[in-house]
Nucleic acid binder design. Structure first.
Length: 895
RNA sequence: GGGUUCGUGGUCUAGUUGGUUAUGACGCGGCCCUUACAAGGCCGAGGUCGGUGGUUCGAAUCCGCCCGAACCCA
């Protein structure tokens, strides 16, 4: 007898176990525990402070895998990192403290960012805790910690040593609002309405030409002009020279295939730079460089009288000036797609700047990506498409504050750039001088010993510390290395791919891409064996969750309404991993009902357990026991296979079906009689079977619903420690004969139960007797003990047909036999069977192996086995009897 | 404009080697307190599997086209 509380109280259970786990080591990664490991490259989220259901889905998948592998006996590392650095935090800190980042020292500003970030992390950890995620918090990391960003720097140094990091002047995407360079991955295309201006350029010794542009503010930067080589309108004009209106520089016309002759007049101006196409042409035709924009989005001295105007103002004023000059021929509204900063949506410009770059080795990335198992598979295509479309190397320098410092110094005398050694990291080059001392290039003096270590003294040397910082993706693209223990515990050469990278599809071109790039470059290994890409979570209305739509559901809201254990199941069942999940209250509700059901199953079963139940030896199993144990064996195997394939939805569905339908509805009902009234030996077999089934289900289900299963586990006899440190059940009771018998027993019980319910009689109403008639070929041997107790009647088993009047009403042909046999005539044969007299067909079946059917004027001989005759009871003869049809034959009930 | 994924009862969903009556949940209607569970049980209504053409004896499933949705890229 166990002392399981009468009612299931998830609020109490969940907070109680969350507290318990907090102070225990159930989730601790201990490689000495096991020969096999399972290491998860958990996403380090940006600490926004809000862990939404989208995170909830991703982390649920991770948690299912982590818990499953723990039960499988692997030493599981489920770490949790935080991707702290970045512009959003800077903006937030400026806003909250009502300062501009230049109002305080970099150090002070950084401290404010760290403080703010730590508070946000605590908020998100709280929600993670409430959802029951099983991170090993001793493996937590924050990319803003010196230990971590020192590793980022070290990885930078390693790549620089191999010439995969370099500093150069190159056109880069530039956000004029954030005033920083950004990578291609950070540029998003947005559709906008704009104006297309038609402008005449005066010919120099040749005819004028008319071009179309949406960007008159770039006229000052115009350095060339292009047309399609096959464009008849411009035949013979290549090489002509024109004067740029308002600004006066002369430009030449070139012919290039990349010009779209359909756009505007067919002639376009080439500027430095309007877009990436301009950069290509500029490089190919060796045009001048005439930059016209400043870093903060204004026009510079190259714009003459327009200097100082913002880009938007300049667009209007220059258009007006063109009109005044009489060279603005026409203008019309147009739809265009422009590149914009992903953070602030400001249209980006392309500026040529000295920046730090990481080489993009497309072949290496594609090779590693190909070695990784992608789930779902088609996500691999996204990575390939993105990689193949990369034109520029990755610009990693950012003109910001809250990020990993680039560990490099420039010699004030000769401009030589010195990069720190690995041993110097972490290092802030603006606080410290390099260990190298004198400039290796020009020998310019430095006194490193005295100047190191104290802030500000670096300025006394000839070294100028780099003020640019790194793209935050430089931090997060080494997570597989960090969690593997590099650089303290392993060298780069020792790195082996970790087991799983879970992540969202929205960051394939960033996190997945950069990690493949960096791990590949640093170790020549793929970063992980499997990548599991999760979909998005939509609101209950099927739309993307958004405050303006008012369809946002927060995790704590759902947990409060039902329970974390139920929410996790709802997320698991939302669809196969990779597909988007629509959050639905009904799924949470149905999960919650299932958990109540489970609780009640355990309450019932536990009432029959005592301390000796686990040790019952050689029980005298009956058919019902053998049947449910055999089903359990299948379920454990199937669920294991689904979990290994990351089919959490299928795994949980199977488990629920077994627990509710097979175990609760059928088995428990079948053995109640034996448990309450049976002799000790008979009872013991049922008790042991129940015990095996319940403890197995609880263990498997602990993956999905960790709290209630832990609570139950503690109440069960024979258990030790946490269910989360138990072993995956490995029942070995396959018994096909018992399965057949068990299915017949369960079906009969269920049919009789339904009939009693329909007839308005109590389920425990006793009956005179029940007879089971087995069709030829059905195994009619089964154990009637439990069935008799359940339906409350003596059971009689009979081979053959009951002595009641049966009328053949329909004949079915087996299409999988008749189809291949008669091919194109199969349709006619089936129609013939349908049209024939069932009684006549039945007579033929009884008299021989062959049945002849008339169809479409032809006779066809069919194997009698291909036909089955449906019969109905038309009249009852003699004794009053109720006839139920079953899959194996017929059930007769005598009241 | 290019690409990917996907359209199954009112809602969401299972069904990836073509083969009897298409799965389940929630909702809806009716009946029932049965010594684990009314937070339950039983029964029922509700689907031309987006449309269309094809392959096949046979298509939710394979192929073509069309319509619609979402996402990625330009």
């Amino acid at each position: 007898m166990t002392n399981i509380p009468d009612s299931y109280d998830p609020d109490r259970i969940e907070s109680n176990w969350q507290d318990e786990w907090q102070d225990s080591d159930v989730y601790e990664f201990d490689p000495s525990d096991s020969d096999t490991q399972y290491v998860i490259d958990t996403p380090p989220p940006y600490p926004s402070g809000n862990l939404h259901l989208g995170h909830g889905l991703g982390w649920s998948y991770i948690d299912f895998s982590a818990r499953f592998h723990r039960l499988q006996g692997d030493a599981v590392l489920f770490p949790q990192g935080w991707d702290c650095h970045g512009l959003p935090t800077e903006v937030k800190v400026e806003e909250v403290n009502d300062i501009h980042r230049t109002d305080v020292s970099n150090e002070e500003f950084r401290d404010l960012c760290v403080e703010w970030t730590n508070a946000r992390i605590e908020e998100m950890k709280q929600t993670m805790r409430e959802l029951g995620f099983s991170q090993d918090w001793s493996a937590e990391y924050r990319t803003m910690d010196p230990e971590y960003w020192g590793q980022t720097q070290e990885s930078f140094v390693e790549m620089a040593d191999d010439d995969m990091v370099y500093r150069d002047e190159h056109p880069v995407n530039w956000c004029p609002r954030c005033e920083t360079a950004i990578a291609d991955a950070e540029v998003e295309n947005v559709d906008r309405s704009g104006t297309l201006y038609y402008v005449t350029f005066e010919g120099v010794g040749n005819d004028d030409i008319e071009i179309a542009t949406t960007r008159p503010e770039l006229l000052a930067a115009c350095v060339g002009m292009a047309v399609d080589p096959d464009d008849e309108r411009f035949a013979d004009r290549v090489g002509d020279t024109f004067e740029v209106p308002l600004f006066g520089q002369e430009v030449e016309l070139v012919a290039d295939d990349d010009v779209d002759p359909e756009f505007g007049t067919g002639a376009v101006m080439i500027c430095t730079f309007g877009d990436k196409q301009d950069v290509d042409w500029w490089a190919e035709y060796d045009f001048d460089l005439r930059p016209v924009f400043t870093e903060d989005g204004h026009l510079n001295e190259n714009a003459g009288e327009f200097e100082g105007l913002s880009i938007d103002d300049a667009k209007d004023e220059i258009a007006d000036a063109l009109d005044d000059e009489g060279v603005l021929v026409d203008s019309e509204p147009t739809e265009q797609s422009v590149g914009a900063c992903w953070r602030c949506d400001t249209p980006i410009e392309i500026l040529s700047k000295e920046q730090w770059f990481v080489e993009v080795d497309q072949d290496l990335i594609l090779e590693k990506a190909d070695d990784v198992e992608w789930i779902p598979e088609h996500m691999h295509d996204r990575l390939v498409d993105w990689t193949e479309s990369m034109e520029w190397d990755w610009v990693i320098s950012r003109q910001r504050v809250f990020a990993t410092p680039i560990p490099a110094w420039e010699c004030r005398d000769c401009g030589y750039w010195h990069i720190a050694s690995a041993a110097e990291c972490p290092v802030d080059p603006n606080e410290e001088s390099p260990a190298v001392g004198e400039c290796p290039e020009c020998g310019s003096g430095a006194t490193p010993e005295e100047s190191r270590g104290a802030g500000g003294e670096a300025a006394e040397t000839n070294w100028r510390g780099e003020t640019d910082v790194m793209d935050t993706w430089m931090d997060s693209s080494i997570t597989p290395l960090h969690i593997s223990g590099w650089p303290q515990d392993i060298d780069l050469d020792d790195f082996e791919p970790v087991d799983l990278r879970p992540q969202g599809h929205d960051i394939i071109r960033t996190w997945a891409f950069y990690t493949l790039l960096r791990t590949g470059a640093l170790t020549d290994e793929k970063p992980w064996d499997d990548i599991l890409v999760n979909g998005m979570v939509f609101g209950p209305d099927g739309n993307k969750m958004s405050k303006s739509r008012g369809n946002v559901v927060e995790p704590d809201e759902a947990i409060e309404e039902y329970s974390a254990d139920a929410v996790r199941q709802a997320l698991a069942l939302g669809g196969r991993p990779g597909s988007d999940v629509q959050f639905q209250w009904k799924e949470v509700k149905s999960a919650s009902r299932f958990l109540t059901k489970l609780w009640n199953i355990v309450k019932f079963a536990g009432g029959h357990f005592d301390e000796d139940t686990p040790d019952i030896a050689d029980p005298a199993y009956r058919d019902a026991d053998r049947w449910i144990l055999s089903e359990l064996t299948r379920v454990a195997d199937e669920v294991e296979a689904e979990m290994e394939a990351y089919r959490f939805d299928a795994a949980l569905r199977r488990l629920r079906e077994f627990a509710w339908e097979d175990l609760a509805d059928d088995y428990v009902e079948l053995v109640k009689g034996r448990l309450y009234n049976g002799r000790p030996g008979e009872r013991a077999a049922a008790e042991k079977t129940l015990y095996t089934a319940v403890t197995s289900v609880v263990r498997m289900l602990s993956v999905f619903s960790p709290h209630v299963t832990e609570e139950i586990w503690q109440h069960l006899p024979g258990t030790e420690g946490s269910v989360h440190n138990a072993a995956w059940p490995d029942p070995d009771y396959l018994d096909e004969d018992a399965e057949v018998a068990g299915r017949h027993i369960a079906e009969t019980a269920s049919e009789v139960r339904a009939w009693k319910s329909e007839s308005g009689m109590p389920l425990n109403e006793d009956l005179d007797r029940v007879e089971l008639y087995f069709e030829p070929g059905q195994n009619g041997k089964l154990d009637t003990y439990d069935l008799s107790e359940t339906v409350n009647a003596p059971i009689k088993l009979v081979e053959g047909r009951p002595d009641v009047e049966l009328v053949p009403v329909d004949v079915d042909g087996d299409e999988s036999e008749i189809g291949p046999e008669f091919r194109s005539e199969a349709g006619a044969v089936l129609q013939g069977i349908e049209a024939a007299d069932p009684a006549e067909i039945q007579a033929q079946i009884h008299s021989g192996d062959t049945v002849t059917v008339e169809a479409a004027g032809e006779s066809y001989d069919l194997d009698a086995d291909w036909l089955s005759v449906d019969e109905e009871y038309r009249a009852e003869s003699g004794e009053e009897v109720t006839v139920l049809e079953a899959s194996f034959g017929t059930i007769l009930i005598y009241e």
